[in-house]
Design a binder for these strands. Structure first.
Lengths: 133, 133
DNA sequence: TCTTGACCTTCCAGTAACCGGAACGCCCAT
DNA sequence: ATGGGCGTTCCGGTTACTGGAAGGTCAAGA
């Protein structure tokens, strides 16, 4: 398989696949013409990587997950630990975004949004308190 | 005021303040010794920037907000528009994170997390379905 | 056979928003 | 004068790619 084939099948851009080779996440063979020659196992790994990335795992975590994926002797506890840590970070990020959202939507609420220059959003950002409408 | 003073008062790292000058968000004066000389207005702008950034506005948006902040003739509608766009992006990000969280927590649920190699998390990432416990 | 177009290759640069550190200058107090 | 705590610039690194240039390869059609 050439890179275009695995790109289509894995859903990853060719650029990304080359990058993953660059950072040693995959090690495809090479044809005599210099083209990358992907095995089924490479495609499986790329699919795995794509899914892990889409769940927000970092490249470093993907590397660790891949190692466990390849290790038939792994303990599922090790995988679960990584996943739990990631879940915690997702929860933190969610809390942060919710707080942002709340503040921002209060500011927006309070702003008339018309031709006049008076603007509670700018006041809020400048340090003032949010005024009730 | 020197950079340390405004850093303390604005809550921004000195590095960040230098960076903001670099990208022309602020234009502090200079003392004869080469030190940056910050006016009150610079401090206000930095505070404004710090708050806007903490609400997740991008630098580009901050630049636009700053321009409106400085423009006494602005229409609050222009500010509100930027804020609403940002709110939409926050909502999209929230939806995405919630979806990630749901999938990931299902996988974690299904995983025994013990010494055995069998792992629904790895299976899920490899493309398999998530098994019920 | 030549050419066209779709592939593929490498390498370089840029993205966002900074952070860390080196190497150096300035200022004030002891 | 010397030490510590400021300040300065500049360079490189971070994350995970993406875009583009310049060029090689391959198969099909005229």
């Amino acid at each position: 398989m050439n890179i275009g084939d695995v790109a289509r099948q894995s859903g990853l851009p060719a650029k990304t696949i080359r990058y993953y080779e660059d950072i040693d996440l995959i090690k495809p063979l090479r044809d005599s013409n210099g083209y990358r020659a992907f095995r089924e196992s490479d495609l499986h790994k790329l699919t795995f990587l794509g899914r892990a990335r889409s769940l927000g795992f970092s490249i470093a975590e993907c590397r660790a997950l891949m190692a466990l994926y390849e290790d038939q002797e792994r303990a599922s506890a090790d995988v679960k630990k990584i996943a739990r840590q990631h879940l915690n970070r997702i929860d933190e990020k969610l809390a942060e975004l919710k707080a942002m959202r709340a503040t921002l939507s209060d500011l927006i609420e309070a702003c008339a949004g018309d031709h006049r220059p008076d603007c509670p959003i700018l006041k809020g950002l400048a340090g003032g308190k949010i005024q009730a409408k």
